[in-house]
């Protein structure tokens, strides 16, 4: 098996993707679809949770997309959850199943999973943030014995925007993970929590716990979630986030993802709060 990164690096150009196949497409919401991407035989993605790939449709463009399947569940093929917002992301939605796409990567820094061993893990997922976290959640659940308590908080705008309903049901059915879901604007059938994601924080018992938090959501979410987590006594170095920046290369060259002296595509997208708290542009 050849790792995709090795293949990416051995191509004549670091910008030239490896062809891959869309093996399956599952619509999740009106604008988000789950893609199962199959690499050519003999290739293995070999990623870590939190990393991303550059996804191409030749003739349209390229975009960074988080790998949303866990390493334990990405044998030969892996999953991407894509929200249609622009040219590339709309184009992949219009592809027929079986179509060819291009993949480069995996790039970026992952969640330091080994540092979470033996501790409580709190997952905080806002909107599309559940996609990168899903990779980590399953990685944790597939090595469940390595961790203490596992808690998942999920926030969405409406029940219709909730991603991965099957996975949420799968996790909720287990008794070794605590799942809380909230929506900002409920429908009539909605029977669960209503409110922004921070309203779920008081459901958790933090007392005397050795907890790490992993938080992924839109840029505005961090502004509200971070103060709450800090107030509950989490250490700066125990809060981990994924940062979204415009990325045109993924390999530290195009300058778009720069946040102070840091190239998010190289040193990120995963950062601890400790690492970025003094960077004015981090939460701008």
């Amino acid at each position: 098996m050849i790792t995709l990164l090795k293949e990416t690096l051995s191509r004549q150009s670091i910008y030239m993707p490896t062809p891959a196949r869309i093996a399956a497409m599952t619509p999740l919401t009106a604008s988000e679809t789950l893609f199962r991407v199959e690499l050519p035989s003999g290739f293995h993605l070999h990623h870590r949770p939190g990393q991303f790939v550059e996804l191409s449709v030749l003739g349209v463009g390229e975009a960074p997309i988080s790998i949303c399947s866990a390493p334990t569940r990405s044998n030969g093929s892996f999953e991407l959850c894509v929200r249609a917002v622009g040219k590339l992301t709309n184009a992949v939605h219009k592809l027929p199943p079986g179509a060819k796409v291009g993949i480069r990567g995996p790039f970026g820094r992952s969640f330091p999973v080994e540092r979470f061993y033996g501790r409580d893990i709190l997952f905080v997922a806002g909107g599309l943030g559940l996609a990168p976290l899903r990779s980590l959640i399953d990685e944790v659940m597939d090595h469940r014995g390595m961790f203490d308590r596992v808690i998942l908080l999920v926030g969405a705008r409406t029940p219709r925007d909730l991603l991965f309903p099957d996975d949420l049901a799968r996790w909720t059915a287990r008794d070794d993970i605590e799942v809380h879901i909230t929506v900002e604007r409920p429908t009539e059938e909605w029977v669960s929590n209503v409110g922004v994601i921070t309203t779920l924080f008081n459901k958790i018992d933090y007392q005397g716990r050795n907890m790490v938090a992993t938080v992924v959501g839109p840029p505005v979410m961090y502004k509200f979630v971070l103060p709450d987590l800090l107030a509950h006594g989490l250490a700066d170095s125990d809060i981990w986030m994924s940062f979204e920046r415009q990325m045109k290369c993924g390999v530290g060259k195009c300058g778009h993802c720069q946040m102070h002296h840091i190239y998010t595509c190289q040193s990120g997208p995963i950062f601890s709060y400790q690492e970025v708290k003094n960077l004015q542009e981090a939460f701008a």
């Binding site: 003739g59 709309n90 184009a91």
Partner: peptide, 11 residues
């Protein structure tokens, strides 16, 4: 025109 043929608005 190529963009329109691809089913998207010109960029």
């Amino acid at each position: 025109v190529t963009h329109l043929l691809q089913g998207r608005l010109p960029n």
